[in-house]
């Protein structure tokens, strides 16, 4: 049974691609067969974050246009055997995607018995974002603890409830999860940032993970190694927890408090 998960947000720059890459790695690390697809045609980034940008020969649009087979376009991850990447095209625009084409690719991946297909949505609510969410069974809505991101997520949740294949066919709708990124407990305590509780209350949804703000995320992106693979990082641990919750495990949320600093660190800074 293949499950299609869209990672979306409405607003740009909140961490959709970082989340797609880490979630895909996390699922693959647990032995699941995973394909992660970049829907951001024209601004492809996922391949960079996954560190396979030099191995992109064929892309998503090529598969849709029938220029190549799906097998030729799927890039096997070098670290995790069961993980595959389908890159976006950098030279086309979003009109290259069609509902029929996307459906065909997803059907083919389902026939290949992938356990999870992760759709990395572009920002916005236009065609690319629409098609990324249209066939989804579940949605991970990435939100930063600030008002504009929360507002855009609310908009996206409205679209998930009304403009998807599941909602149109009355299949119980898309299952929605909230993932907070760039969470800074110190700024929350100072009242500069919205808390998990605030975001949960406004959006009326449960939180599948809270990823603390961390310099490891940028470092990981630049290195082309999804942050979840960095064993020493809090962000990695938080993504690991989110993957576990996605699979139905119940874990308490971590990293909601500022880490206690030792006496020396407080005295001398650190």
């Amino acid at each position: 049974m293949t499950e299609i998960i869209v990672v979306t947000s409405g607003k740009g720059g909140v961490g959709k691609t970082t989340t797609s890459a880490s979630m895909a790695c996390g699922l693959a690390r647990r032995g699941k067969r995973v394909a992660v697809i970049d829907f951001d045609i024209g601004l492809r980034n996922l391949d960079l974050i996954m560190g396979c940008e030099r191995r992109v020969v064929y892309d998503f649009v090529n598969v849709i246009n029938g220029d190549c087979t799906l097998k030729q376009a799927l890039i096997k991850d070098k670290r995790l055997e069961t993980l595959h990447v389908l890159a976006a095209s950098q030279t086309r625009d979003k009109d290259a995607l069609t509902e029929e084409g996307v459906r065909r690719v997803l059907d083919e991946l389902t026939a290949e018995q992938f356990d999870y297909i992760i759709c990395d949505s572009p920002a916005g609510i236009e065609k690319g974002a629409h098609l990324a969410m249209y066939f989804a069974d579940r949605a991970v809505v990435v939100v930063n603890p600030e008002v504009s991101s929360v507002r855009d997520s609310d908009r996206i949740l409205g679209l998930l409830a009304s403009k998807t294949h599941r909602s149109a066919n009355g299949n119980g709708g898309v299952k929605e999860h909230l993932l907070l990124t760039r969470y800074n407990p110190r700024r929350v305590a100072n009242g500069e940032m919205m808390s998990v509780g605030d975001v949960k209350e406004i959006l009326g949804l449960d939180v599948i993970g809270v990823v603390p703000e961390s310099p490891d995320v940028l470092a990981a992106s630049n290195a082309g190694v999804p942050v979840i693979l960095n064993e020493d990082s809090d962000a990695a641990a938080a993504y690991g927890d989110a993957v576990a919750r996605l699979l139905g495990e119940e874990l308490p949320l971590r990293f909601l408090e500022e880490p206690k600093r030792g006496f020396f660190a407080r005295m001398f800074g650190g």
């Binding site: 507002r151 609310d154 908009r155 409205g158 679209l159 409830a161 959006l203």
Partner: peptide
């Protein structure tokens, strides 16, 4: 949700959930 619009024609409207900003 934000951006959604509900209209109850010729009757009352009861919403048993929240109405987001911009809805």
């Amino acid at each position: 949700r934000s951006g959604q619009r509900l209209y109850a024609r010729g009757r009352d409207l009861v919403v048993t959930a929240m109405v987001g900003a911009g809805a």
